[in-house]
């Protein structure tokens, strides 16, 4: 598969690999994809009280395009508000990495992962201190 230099660079030096404690307040986790389909992305965001994404981390099981797509979006979401991050489109990702047509689904998955992480954060924020109260 002929990949762009930018994609290969992200694959070889992925940004922001890792995990946040998913039960921490301020952390939103998106887990999308399926092992049987050959790609699973876990994208996490750490959101400030002001609603700005301060940090992001990912782990991905998938092809080079999936790894590069998730690496790229962790860079893109940092410093953005939740609304701004929610506007990132798969076509932007596909264009930036010059994804071949059969790999477009990797960028769709990355967009889904951002949305899932944002939703998870919002749901947690709406039901605060649930974990703490139980202790």
């Amino acid at each position: 598969m002929a990949y762009s230099e930018k994609l290969i660079e992200h694959y070889e030096n992925p940004r922001n690999i890792g995990s946040f404690e998913k039960d921490d307040a301020g952390v939103g986790t998106g887990l999308v994809g399926a092992p049987a389909c050959g790609d699973v992305m876990k994208l996490q965001i750490k959101v400030s009280p002001e609603g700005i994404i301060e940090d992001a981390k990912f782990k991905t099981f998938g092809c080079g395009s999936a790894i590069a797509s998730s690496s790229l979006v962790t860079e893109w979401v940092k410093g953005k508000s939740l609304d701004e991050a929610g506007e990132i489109k798969n076509t932007d990702i596909a264009e930036e990495l010059a994804l071949p047509p059969v790999k477009i689904h990797c960028s769709v998955l990355a967009e889904d992962a951002i949305k899932a992480a944002i939703n998870d954060y919002k749901e947690k924020a709406a039901a605060p201190a649930k974990g703490e109260a139980a202790e």
Binding site: L31, P35, V40, K42, F58, K59, T60, F61, I67
Partner: peptide
């Protein structure tokens, strides 16, 4: 594997 969410789950004992 260090960047695989499935490996991470397996290490935590989560059945995929």
């Amino acid at each position: 594997r260090a960047m695989s969410p499935l490996w991470e789950m397996a290490q935590e004992g989560i059945d995929i």
